[in-house]
Amino acid sequence: MKRVLPIKSGLWDLSQRTSVMGILNVTPDSFSDGGKFVSVEAAVTQARLMISEGADMIDIGAQSTRPMASRISAEEEIDRLMPVLEAVAGMPEAEGKLISVDTFYSEVASEAVSKGAHLVNDVSAGQLDSNMLRVVAGLRVPYIAMHMRGEPHTMQNSENLQYDDVCKQIASEIYSRVKDAELSGIPAWRVIIDPGIGFSKKTEHNLDILMGLPNIRAEIARKSFGVSHAPMLIGPSRKKFLGQICSRIAADERDPATIACVTAGVLGGANIVRVHNVRDNADSVKVCDAMLKQSTKNLS
Rank of each mutant, 00 (worst) to 15 (best):
P6G: 03
K8Q: 13
K8T: 03
G10F: 07
L11E: 15
L11D: 09
S15W: 00
T18M: 07
T18Q: 04
S19C: 14
V20L: 06
M21P: 04
G22C: 05
L24S: 04
N25T: 02
N25W: 01
T27G: 03
D29Y: 07
K36F: 10
F37S: 10
A42H: 09
A42C: 00
V44T: 14
V44P: 01
V44H: 06
S52Y: 00
E53N: 03
G54Y: 05
M57E: 04
I60Y: 12
I60H: 03
A62W: 11
Q63D: 01
S64W: 07
T65L: 04
E76S: 15
E76I: 08
E77Y: 07
D79W: 10
R80G: 08
V84S: 05
E86T: 12
A87L: 12
V88F: 05
V88P: 09
V88E: 12
V88G: 12
A89T: 14
A89M: 11
G90H: 07
G90R: 10
K97T: 03
L98M: 02
I99Y: 02
I99P: 03
S100Y: 06
V108K: 10
A112E: 05
S114Q: 10
G116V: 07
G116K: 12
A117P: 05
H118A: 06
N121I: 12
N121Y: 11
V123S: 03
S124G: 07
G126L: 11
G126N: 09
L128G: 00
S130R: 06
L133M: 15
V136D: 00
A137G: 05
R140V: 06
H147D: 09
E151I: 09
E151V: 11
E151N: 10
P152Y: 13
E159M: 04
E159T: 02
E159D: 08
L161W: 04
D164Y: 12
V166W: 03
Q169W: 04
I170Q: 08
A171W: 11
A171V: 10
I174N: 06
R177L: 02
R177I: 00
L183C: 02
A188T: 02
I193A: 09
G196P: 08
F199V: 07
K201G: 08
K201D: 03
K202N: 08
G212E: 14
P214D: 07
E219L: 06
R222G: 11
F225K: 15
V227D: 13
H229T: 08
R238F: 14
F241W: 11
F241K: 13
L242V: 12
G243C: 14
R248E: 15
D252M: 11
D255S: 15
D255I: 13
T258E: 13
G265K: 06
A270H: 03
H276G: 05
V278G: 09
N281I: 12
D283Q: 13
S284V: 06
D289A: 08
L292Y: 08
Q294K: 10
T296F: 04
T296Y: 03
L299C: 01
S300V: 06
